[in-house]
Design a protein around this nucleic acid. Structure first.
Lengths: 104, 104
DNA sequence: ATTTACAGTAACAAAAAGATTAGTACTTGC
DNA sequence: GCAAGTACTAATCTTTTTGTTACTGTAAAT
């Protein structure tokens, strides 16, 4: 999704998986409401389209940040959670969120 | 430089000023070598062009993350530093860098 | 019977970000 | 005298990212 050279430092690695307009925000929203469903997540995420949300969720799931729990029901019912890895990133996001509120 | 809605949370605010391919990395490099000069910074920053470096530095300076010290000499001599605000963000980047190295 | 909600998907268009090329003016080293 | 280094800048082009539109099938609510 975004092209930061992956070979160098941890910062680059993080940016290559979580860079872009939405992913930090999506992780943050799922954290605030574990088990959230697709449409609710879209409503909560300030202006994102279903297409972008879908793409990001797919990538975040593939990259091991997000867990997709499908109830295989009709009409569909799918819930999103953070994985262990996703959760382990939350401390950083909390710090970053506080920093952003206080410094920007 | 990048369009994340600014109204919501700290995360969004951070992303709107530091999002994109290079800014985290540039801040990180200046931190590792305070007083670094333009061309050296370009060499250290893995594949960035002078145009992008210049744009990012301009924006980071305007946004108060980076200090540009011009010696007004010929040939030009300019050094880049982190501002107090820039430095205050470093703790987060250190955590993020470690996290990236260990988890990705 | 029509609308709404669920969770998407494909094809395409637009916008943003990034890269390329060429050039500024001056100096030191070869 | 020529190349290389200093720190950029403008204009243009390409690539990447994001957004738009239209659509799927089922069920519950109005």
């Amino acid at each position: 999704m975004n092209q930061v050279s992956q070979t160098s430092c941890g910062i680059s690695k993080v940016m290559s998986q979580l860079g872009g307009k939405w992913k930090f925000l999506i992780i943050w929203r799922i954290h605030q409401n574990e088990g959230i469903r697709f449409n609710q997540l879209q409503r909560d995420t300030n202006g994102i389209t279903n297409v972008m949300l879908n793409r990001c969720l797919k990538e975040l799931t593939q990259d091991g940040f997000v867990l997709r729990k499908d109830f295989h029901s009709v009409p569909p019912h799918v819930e999103y959670y953070l994985t262990k890895q996703g959760k382990s990133f939350i401390k950083i996001m909390e710090t970053m969120n506080d920093w952003g509120e206080n410094n920007l």
